[in-house]
Simulated assay, not measured.
Amino acid sequence: MNTKHEFILLYDGRCPICRKEVAWLRSRNKYNKLGLQDIHAEEFIPKHYGKSLDELMAEIHGLFPDGRLIKGMPVFYAAYSAVGLGWLIAPARWPLLRPLFDSLYAWFARHRLGLGALFGAKTCQVGSCSIRSEHGKT
Rank of each mutant, 00 (worst) to 15 (best):
V75R: 00
L25N: 03
A58C: 07
Q125R: 12
D66M: 04
Y77C: 02
T123E: 13
D102A: 13
H40E: 00
G127Y: 08
R14H: 15
G35P: 06
N32Q: 15
I89F: 08
S103T: 14
D102K: 11
V75S: 00
K4S: 14
V83E: 01
L25D: 00
T123N: 12
R26C: 12
L25A: 00
I131F: 05
A109Q: 06
T3F: 07
W24K: 10
A79F: 05
Y80W: 15
R98F: 02
N32D: 15
A121E: 07
L56R: 06
G84S: 04
A90K: 08
L34S: 03
Y77W: 10
E59Y: 07
G120E: 04
I70V: 15
F7Q: 03
Y11M: 08
L118H: 10
D66Y: 02
Q125C: 08
G120L: 09
D38M: 07
N29C: 06
R98H: 03
A79E: 00
L53P: 00
I39T: 01
A23F: 06
C18D: 04
E43K: 13
I45S: 11
C15D: 07
H40C: 00
V126R: 11
L118E: 09
E42Q: 14
L10W: 05
P16G: 15
C15N: 08
R110D: 11
P65W: 07
G67E: 01
P46M: 02
R68F: 02
R68E: 12
G120Q: 08
D38W: 06
C18W: 11
A41M: 00
K30Y: 09
I70P: 04
R19L: 10
L63P: 00
L36G: 08
C15I: 10
S128H: 01
K51Q: 15
L25C: 07
D54P: 04
R132V: 13
L96W: 12
L34A: 06
C129S: 06
L56M: 12
M57K: 14
L69R: 03
M57R: 15
P16H: 06
Y77G: 02
G35H: 02
V75K: 02
S133G: 14
I89S: 05
R68T: 14
E134T: 15
E43I: 11
Y49Q: 09
G116W: 03
Y77Q: 10
D54E: 11
G86E: 01
G35N: 04
S130I: 04
F44C: 01
H135Y: 14
K71S: 15
I60A: 10
Y105N: 03
S133Q: 13
A106S: 12
S130W: 04
V22Y: 05
I131A: 06
R28C: 09
E59F: 13
I89Q: 00
W107L: 11
W94P: 00
F108Q: 08
G120Y: 07
R26T: 15
P16W: 04
H40L: 01
Y31G: 11
L115M: 13
E134Q: 13
A82M: 06
C18H: 10
L56I: 02
G116Y: 05
D12A: 03
K122M: 06
G120A: 08
Q37R: 09
W107M: 09
G62E: 03
I8D: 06
R68C: 05
F44V: 08
I17L: 15
K20S: 13
R28K: 12
K20A: 14
A117I: 04
Y105E: 05
K122C: 00
E43L: 12
L9C: 02
W94R: 06
R14K: 14
